[in-house]
Simulated assay, not measured.
Amino acid sequence: MAEVKLFGNWGSPFSCRIEIALKLKGVEYEFIEEDVYNDNKSPLLLKYNPVHKKIPVLLHNGKPICESVVILEYIDETWEGPSILPKDPYERAMARFWTRFLEEKCFPAMKQASWSTGEEQEKAKEEATELLKILEGTLSGKKFFGGDSIGIVDIVANFIAHWFIILQEITGLELLTQEKFPKLGQWLDDYLSCSIIKENLPPKDKLTASFQARIQAATTSK
């Protein structure tokens, strides 16, 4: 059997993406927990990802693959099982386009809206709202971003489904609601009701406590 190891962190949406993909494919792996928040990264992580020095890193037969979206594509091309990317070249290109949109546009804006304050936060909220409107439009007539089954765009969007929703509850931010975005709201329900997704997301109470501690630390340091 191929040796597969994943260097990640229990609360990271990025390493969670990889766990979901491996579970969808039925690949057995060893999870190696990294302490990424206290600048206490292991020598092995620094060895296998010397460029970015961050998680996730997938180690397959001793060979490291870095960057979560790159790893997702590698998993899809390496192992049999449900397809993560579409087979059709055009649909595959579109899936890559939307993963970039999530990575480069949505994630930074939603992160900024969650963690900033004042005028900076208001600007980020406006930007995030416009980006969510675009995502809402892509779901017309579809259960998931990739169609009838979970694909790479859904997996990359996992930070919206779990992490961002929890942050909204903690901070009182009402950016993504069922009333404002009914299609995204339905996607959330369908995505989170999938057993593999549900079983591999960080526990809500543990993630909530982690976020609250970070908010408290940020407030104290001001």
Rank of each mutant, 00 (worst) to 15 (best):
H162L: 14
L201D: 12
W79H: 10
E3V: 03
A128Y: 11
K54V: 11
W10H: 02
E80W: 00
A21P: 11
E104S: 12
A2G: 04
L102E: 06
P82N: 13
L85M: 13
L59S: 05
F181K: 00
S12V: 06
K222A: 13
M110C: 15
I166T: 07
G141I: 08
F107D: 01
I20R: 02
F107K: 12
I166D: 00
L6R: 11
T171M: 13
H52F: 12
T78G: 01
Y74N: 04
K87G: 14
H52S: 10
W163V: 00
C16E: 06
K123C: 09
C16V: 12
I65G: 04
F145A: 04
E136S: 07
L45D: 06
F144G: 08
E3Y: 11
K23I: 08
V36I: 15
T171E: 03
G11P: 00
E3P: 09
T138D: 02
W163S: 01
K123I: 05
L184Q: 04
D189L: 08
I18A: 10
D35K: 13
S221Q: 15
N38P: 11
V153G: 00
K63E: 10
K41P: 03
A109R: 04
T138Q: 15
L176Y: 03
S116N: 08
A157I: 03
E30Q: 13
Q112I: 00
E77L: 03
V4L: 07
P108G: 10
I160R: 01
D35R: 14
P64H: 03
A95V: 13
A124N: 08
F159C: 11
I65Q: 06
W115G: 01
E127C: 10
M94P: 07
A128P: 04
S42D: 05
A124E: 03
V27Y: 04
F14S: 00
C66V: 10
N9F: 09
I18Y: 07
F159N: 07
E30F: 05
W187F: 06
Y48W: 10
L44T: 12
W79A: 06
Q178P: 02
R100Y: 14
C194V: 14
G172L: 11
E33L: 05
D190S: 00
